[in-house]
Amino acid sequence: MVLTALAVVRMRSLFAVVMLSGIFTLLSALLFVTMDAVDVAFTEAAVGAGITTVLMLGTLALTSRHERPTARSPLIPLFVVFVTGAALIYGTMDMPNFGDPTAPAQTHVGADYIARTPEEIDLPNMVTAVLASYRGYDTLGEVAVVFTAGIGVLLLISGLRRRRRKDEDNEGSA
């Protein structure tokens, strides 16, 4: 996966970049499966490899297919990236080991949801139970965000076409 990401950095052909990002998403979906997150892997594979790639290709068709090399030196971004990375890695030093059952993340609400789902919700899929019931407000908010983003795209792309056509009509009649 790191290799794919690095290849994205080097590539100039945007078509190849988009394809590589699709591969990247599929690999990450596999990683989610190995980390027991089947629902997440499912979504990632459907969304990342399907919708995102189609949308990016659509954008490429509307814009250009090659990247122009930039004249700026990469030193300052590299410096920023290394400092941020070092700070984040320093931050992980205090974190519990990977898969530690006594980690703080496992002992509070997570364990509570697992223990209470059979009695209160009585559904086998805990992810659905938490998503729709215990965290119903969150999901309502997320749906509202998706809704707003959809409206935004429609306003940006399809609404304007109508206005332009009207403008042209006005010009034609004037």
Binding site: L123, G136, V143, V146, R161
Partner: peptide, 29 residues
Amino acid sequence: QHYGILLVEAGVGITVTGVMVAIYYAFAA
């Protein structure tokens, strides 16, 4: 809870389908 989750999930599914198809239409047009 079963009924509620079913309804809520249906709502989520309808919105997500609608938004994705609408975005695709907007780009493809």
